[in-house]
Write a protein that binds this DNA or RNA. Structure first.
Length: 293
DNA sequence: CACCCGTGGCC
DNA sequence: TGGCCAAGGGT
């Protein structure tokens, strides 16, 4: 096993000086606040999450508060964060936490992992950042930082591999408190400095020991990363229907809902049915369409 | 494993 | 201008 340059020292020092002052990192943070932040941050930038998270914490400071509010209010308060099924899953997770965990967010990753909407990353992140556990936390930032600093490519492979998991495990400091800071620091470096496009290598604490920089910062040479098309997709049509329901106090007729989708038949109908299946939309006794009750 | 699921900002 | 990207998860 070849010796690797020490990344921990410079990374933790950089984090001490540059960490953002985010509310879910505050000293008075709660497990619930951290869990909600992690779910909101899935595929969604910090700047967009901040105001919605503040509002959620004000209205629903405990899991039981959200569970009592119900999925419709959650989807409405989700606003335009995207992927509103996350709001549904947070309500479902809140119900489990209230009913099976005494309204307290579990502290261990395995129990967290069993909650709706909590996958490997989020379970590890909540256990580490809310409860100080030593966990291997690997998100897109960690993958990119470790790929560049240790392995050398401009960008990691499209899918998370066992080798990456192994590397992340090896790099994680043995000391529990340092491991928590390491996880946060690596994510922060990826978010602020070691970004996907136009990384600020001049500001990077790992600059003098980065494998990618040592190789001359070669451009990404792997297969082109397939972009997500948008115009005309079901996701666009579904998003328009849910947004129309969010903006309405009452219900939408079938005709109104289909029109809101902006999609032609049979796509519009398919999307409306899909939303019903997913529980993002319900039909009342009169046949009108609403957010879930 | 491949694909689906929203949204908006940026280079 | 538009492809690319953002603290992923579920199926």
């Amino acid at each position: 096993m070849p010796e690797r340059p020490d990344l921990t020292g410079p990374l933790l020092a950089w984090f001490d000086a540059h960490a953002r002052d985010l509310p879910w990192r505050a000293a008075d943070r709660t497990g619930w606040g951290v869990l909600v932040s992690e779910v909101m941050l899935q595929q969604t930038p910090v700047a967009r999450v901040l105001p919605v998270w503040q509002e959620w914490m004000r209205r629903w400071p405990r899991p039981s508060d959200l569970a009592a509010a119900g999925p419709g209010e959650a989807v409405r308060a989700w606003g335009r964060l995207g992927y509103p099924r996350r709001a549904l899953r947070l309500v479902a997770a809140a119900e489990v936490i209230r009913d099976e965990h005494g309204d307290e967010v579990p502290a261990d990753a395995e129990t967290l992992r069993a909650l709706p909407g909590i996958g490997e990353y989020t379970a590890a992140a909540v256990a580490a950042f809310a409860f100080g556990r030593r966990e291997v936390v690997v998100d897109t930032n960690v993958r990119r930082v470790e790929a560049r600093a240790v392995s050398g490519p401009a960008l990691p492979a499209p899918s998370y591999s066992a080798a990456e998991r192994r590397l992340a495990t090896e790099l994680l400091p043995a000391d529990r408190e340092r491991s928590v800071r390491w996880n946060a620091a690596t994510m922060e470096l990826g978010a602020l400095v070691c970004t996907a496009r136009a990384p600020r290598c001049g500001e990077c604490p790992l600059q003098d020991r980065c494998a990618w920089v040592a190789a001359g910062s070669p451009p990404h040479d792997g297969p082109p990363r397939r972009g997500q098309r948008w115009e005309g997709t079901d996701r666009q049509a579904r998003g328009r229907i849910v947004q129309a329901l969010r903006e309405t106090d009452g219900t939408l007729t079938r005709e109104q809902a289909l029109a809101a989708s902006g999609a032609p038949e049979p796509q519009a109908e398919r999307c409306l049915l899909g939303l019903l299946t997913d529980g993002l939309v319900e039909q009342d006794e009169a046949g009108g369409f609403t957010l879930p009750q």
